[in-house]
Design a protein around this nucleic acid. Structure first.
Lengths: 365, 365
DNA sequence: GTGAAAGCGCTAACAG
DNA sequence: CTGTTAGCGCTTTCAC
């Protein structure tokens, strides 16, 4: 007696959903043909294609990617790990990544690492168990275990929003140290001499601040104060920052010559976030303190409001959307061409943006 | 000759990763025991537990959730669909959902629907193919196909950020119509008579505006203008909104009595977003227009900056974190207890928040 | 262009 | 507390 045919198994474990077997039977083809209709339609004859698609439509069949992923060893899933969704500075990047991936028919598995490498490591364990085809991380600071494990899996990885000499794989970001340095050089060149910093304890922001201070030191300048807040930057913190620094406003401005004119440079508050800077502007407005007459303000990020504050905010422009698009594109490229060009770090750079909150610009030719 | 044992198959198709079979062999137990160590550790003897865990540690075994999901018909995946990540109004909700789910050992599959029901429908097709254990949607407006398909799958669904009489399954939100109505009643009661609206074309915001206008009409009041912008709300749009309405500032304020004092009520700009309202405040500050003396401003959302603008912004408080937590909790509850209480709509409500941008409050007892 | 057979790596079900 | 067996629903491989 022949072994019973497996063509349409209904066992105790079956989930009673419509499967590829049901569709195949109704369409009068083999299951593998249904699979081809969905995955390689060009390899299927037009008439068969239509026949199968009609049955799919009629039955309301929904494919099971779980089974497909297990069989094919590809999930069409990309894990994206961000520190915190409520930090708007990453929103553009995240949005760009998700949009680009969805358009390429990949889905996003989201992970929140909370700015802690240890938490990220735990998260990666779970993430890897889903066998994503690729991983996009925020930052380049990870535990040694995480780095080793990621390299061991061979899954394409893109690190973002930072620079390092030793990336896990691909890298799309910029150097926070360079930003701090250039920002200091720029403001010194503009004639500023009295500095105070306002920051939150985000590790990358702190690195920018440290680098900024180091560069000041090379010119024998020491900042007058440094206000550090906890958690995500808020308008409230920015306002409080200025309140805490009001005593510094007594200092007479530095006078510098620009051609035939004389420009005054007061205290400047250098913030690690546009949001903090916006808070400073708000507090200044509420107290009738002139910006940039009595105090100048510098932000970070060039978030969408920065050009429209009053006065318009000078800042460091980071193109988050660009980072996201490049990161996603680099990953997709690799997924398409696993043996393509070797990983190459992309430095997307940054731009110092002069607006009204730091006063008239001195030509620096 | 006996059939070769399947215990440790290495075929052409194997992915050469470490599997549960390898771990089992090294630990001297059956594969199912390894599975139990990971999924039901309390059913395993302490010594076996330790033995297996040591091997897992040593080999660097990473479980394959794909295979597990296929076998168990549970994915520990929850799909979350949001219109747009860059809209900060949803950030709190999304963050709360993701945090709560991760803590319960579920992962988040992200989908971006772009405010369009048709796009959402396509997205759902892909999402369903991943067999998520639950789905959290933003809004209650979906195509008929989407609703039918979601109901057919039997997957627990939570709709958020809105109210409807006919939810797909569970619902956590508030009524945009009620907000518009109450907001109008409130402002009329405060003595305002000259209204202009500033909004973006987000469908829920437009519904609030429409409801607001309807309620005004019941008191024979007609708004003087309605500025509608496209896309996500920005500070820039808010500023532009005020610029476009400057001509309305000529109108003399309404005078009303509050006890022995007399209060003046000027034009009030009712915005569908705190961000727009913040832009109005900014433009007013830049022009030296007094708020609330010459123009009053009302926002929506009570975003984290609203209490700290200058002047502080009156608004409608929505607790996005609360929505997210409740949505996630309701879902988790159902996943734990599939036959628990029937779906119940949760109206989280809202709060009218009076701050300085709408001037002194009139007692409404 | 289409099909049959054999898994992918895990867990449900049942037995001991 | 532990093990055996038999799939989960799909795709790879090889054949026609």
């Amino acid at each position: 007696m022949p072994k019973p045919k497996k063509a349409h198994p209904v066992t105790a474990r079956s989930t009673h959903g419509i499967t590829i077997f049901d569709v195949a039977k109704l369409a009068g083809v083999a299951p593998i043909t249904v699979s081809r209709v969905m995955n390689q339609p060009d390899q299927v004859k037009e008439s068969t294609l239509l026949k199968v698609r009609r049955v799919i439509e009629e039955t309301g069949y929904v494919r099971n990617q779980i089974a497909g992923s297990l069989a094919s060893n590809r999930t069409r899933l990309v894990a994206v790990v961000v520190p915190m969704l409520t930090n708007p500075i990453f929103a553009d990047t995240f949005q760009a990544i998700a949009a680009r991936l969805e358009q390429a028919n990949y889905q996003v598995l989201l992970g929140i690492s909370g700015y802690k490498a240890a938490q990220e490591q735990e998260l990666l364990e779970v993430v890897l168990s889903r066998r994503p085809d690729g991983i996009i991380l925020t930052g380049t600071i990870h535990t040694e275990v995480s780095r080793k494990r990621l390299r061991a899996t061979g899954i394409p990885v893109v690190e973002t929003w930072d620079m390092t000499d030793d990336p896990i794989d691909m890298l799309v970001g910029f150097s926070h140290e360079t930003i701090g340095q250039r920002e200091a050089q720029h403001l010194l060149a503009q004639g500023y001499r009295d500095f105070a910093l306002i920051e939150v304890d985000d590790p990358r922001g702190v690195r920018r601040s440290n680098s900024f201070i180091q560069q000041l030191a090379r010119q024998d300048v020491t900042p007058l104060d440094r206000q550090t807040f906890h958690g995500l930057p808020t308008l409230e913190q920015g306002r409080l920052g200025l309140v805490n620094l009001l005593h510094l406003l007594q200092r007479p401005p530095v006078e510098i010559r620009a051609g035939s004119a004389v420009i005054q440079r007061p205290l400047i508050l250098v913030c690690t976030s546009d949001t903090l800077a916006h808070g400073v502007l708000t507090e200044a407005a509420s107290r009738g303190i002139a910006v940039p007459g009595q105090v100048a303000v510098m932000g970070f990020g060039d978030m969408n409001f920065a050009a429209h504050t009053f006065p318009a905010l000078s800042t460091v422009k980071i193109d988050g959307t660009d980072i996201g698009q490049r990161a996603a594109s680099a990953l997709l490229e690799r997924l398409k061409e696993p043996n393509g060009a070797p990983p190459e770090a992309m430095d997307v750079g940054f731009t110092l943006v002069n607006r009204d909150s730091t006063g008239p610009l001195i030509s620096t030719r």
